[in-house]
């Protein structure tokens, strides 16, 4: 039985907006499913329907075998939910929050106290347990939120952007926890705007765009769909100076002729020659040898493998905002040193 299954899942909002438009997906038990999509693509609406916070207006969805519309109460008993804007009451203490969550799941007080202790230990918050949540850092809040989602040992865990805005160390801690939980048999449905996160954690990935599922598969399969690995190389001229893009046409033609034997040539970029290779790293040595045989010296060579971002761009026509930010940030000029 699939842990999560949807058929033609649809959600309309007032004003003729179709936020989710006929999504079919199946998440198997024990899987980590990564759900990707740009803002406004229908990601959050889908999750809210799956966790019974929003009723579908069309199609159907089952979670842990229960229908989200007709058996909402059974769904709620089977799932753990950590939503995007970690909704934690700043006035409560970490331990109190876990105890409340246990009570809401009908767990007896003594058992709830035990669970709170062990979960606090599990997410490394034992020391902060009796401090108000308002004093927690972003990473601590996420970990606490994750712990609250686990009090009733849910079969299926929904994590909506669990590491957005976290520093790399905290992110790593959350990843480790998610992967441990999965090893223990919990099915995880995870939305994220970090492709690296999906690549690291997810067994399979679904990409939603404009309310429709536009791609689904293992990260490897998806990457293979958008293209093979390719080599990017530049040549050194005979006197050791690199060949500029306008440079030695004869040499370049000769190189292209050689490279074409290994795979499809791609249009040159930034003065570098590009060629697709079938096997990746194992193609590097033969390529260099062949060029050398033709009297061409290689100045630099990179093996470029397709990333989930390439998949994303191909399927949705845009970059994922999280990664986009990172690129923008890196591209920003350093502020003038003298101030």
């Amino acid at each position: 039985m699939a842990a999560i299954e949807t058929e033609g899942l649809r959600r309309d909002f007032a004003g003729g907006i179709v936020a989710v438009d006929g999504v079919d997906l199946a998440v198997e038990e024990g899987e980590i499913y990564g759900f990707l999509g740009p803002n406004g693509a229908g990601k959050t609406t889908t999750v809210r329907m799956l966790v019974t916070l929003l009723r579908p207006t069309g199609g159907r969805a089952t979670v842990a075998g229960y229908d989200v519309a007709d058996q909402a109460s059974d769904v709620r008993k089977s799932i753990g939910v950590a939503l995007q804007e970690a909704a934690l009451d700043p006035l409560m203490k970490g331990r109190e929050l876990l105890q409340l969550q246990a009570t809401l799941h009908g767990i007896r007080k003594a058992r709830g106290d035990e669970l709170a202790d062990s979960l606090l230990d599990r997410v490394g918050l034992t020391k902060a347990a009796d401090r108000r949540v308002g004093t927690y850092s972003g990473g601590m809040r996420r970990r606490l939120d994750l712990a609250t989602a686990l009090v009733h040992e849910p079969k299926v865990l929904f994590l909506d952007e669990p590491t957005t805005g976290l520093d790399p160390v905290s992110r790593q801690a959350v990843w480790q926890e998610v992967s441990d939980l999965n090893d223990e048999g919990t099915t995880v449905f995870l939305t994220t705007q970090y492709l690296e996160e999906a690549d690291m954690l997810a067994d399979r990935v679904g990409i939603i765009s404009d309310g429709k599922l536009v791609a689904e598969g293992t990260p490897e399969a998806l990457k293979a769909q958008v293209g093979k690995p390719h080599l990017e190389l530049s040549l050194a001229s005979a006197d050791g100076v690199s060949v500029s893009s306008e440079g030695n046409d004869a040499e370049e033609d000769k190189a292209e002729e050689v490279l074409a034997r290994f795979g499809k040539l791609l249009p040159p970029r930034d003065g570098k020659l590009l060629v697709e290779v079938a096997h990746g790293a194992s193609d590097i040595a033969p390529v260099i040898r062949a060029l050398d045989d033709s009297g061409l010296a290689v100045e630099s060579l990179d093996l470029v493998e397709p990333s989930l971002d390439d998949v994303f761009v191909e399927k949705t026509g845009q970059h994922l905002e999280g990664d986009d930010d990172a690129v923008d940030g890196a591209a920003e000029p350093e502020p003038a040193a003298a101030e």
Binding site: L53, V81, L83, A87, H105, T148
Partner: peptide
Amino acid sequence: QGWFDRLLASP
């Protein structure tokens, strides 16, 4: 602030 979602998503 989203706190009430926590209650609504509970059984």
